[in-house]
């Protein structure tokens, strides 16, 4: 029997519209190749801690943002479950905390993920490493193929009833 190209797909959710588009592609792809679908949102506690350390945030603010991020994560995870259900696709969802690119890398290794799907990465507009985003870092460090989804509004029509 011919092996399917991808058997375990992970889509990274970061609260952006681009990551929701990536989720839609991942759902349709998982459905067509009969792959197991995972979706993860990482609450970026590393950035929060760095902002407190740099004195940009006070502790009270850190806690407030942490709550905001957790709510945002739950909202996106619930939405991804609804979208997957609308296409009869099972989805394994998770919310993690830490440095997004490190948590995603660790999740991929732990679950044997063989395709990472993400929203569009940024154009290279600066040579400064400090300005690389989390998705840039994921793209560079992923141990498996990565599918980068460009903004595409056509696919939203496929899920119109669920949005």
């Amino acid at each position: 029997m011919k092996k399917t190209p991808f058997s375990k797909i992970l889509v990274y959710l970061d609260g952006s519209e681009g990551s929701m588009t990536a989720l839609m592609y991942a759902i349709l792809l998982a459905s067509s190749v009969k792959a197991e679908l995972h979706a993860s949102y990482v609450v970026n506690t590393k950035a929060l801690s760095e902002l407190v350390k740099a004195r940009v945030f006070v502790n009270q603010e850190k806690l407030e943002y942490m709550e905001d991020l957790k709510k945002d994560a739950k909202r996106h995870i619930r939405h991804s479950e609804r979208l997957a259900a609308s296409k009869n696709v099972d989805i394994h969802t998770s919310i993690m905390e830490g440095s997004p690119h490190k948590e995603i890398l660790s999740y991929m290794k732990q679950h044997g993920i063989d395709l990472l799907v993400m929203g569009s990465v940024n154009a290279i507009r600066s040579r400064r490493e400090e300005l690389a985003s989390e998705t840039d870092r994921m793209l560079r460090t992923a141990p498996c193929p990565v599918m980068v989804i460009r903004d595409d509004y056509d696919i939203w029509a496929e899920f119109e009833e669920e949005i």
Partner: peptide, 18 residues
């Protein structure tokens, strides 16, 4: 959009560490 706000603040703090 808390995630984006935090990422932008973190990027400023990071680049200003140079």
């Amino acid at each position: 959009n808390p995630s984006e706000h935090i990422q932008i603040l973190a990027s400023i703090a990071k680049i200003c560490s140079s």
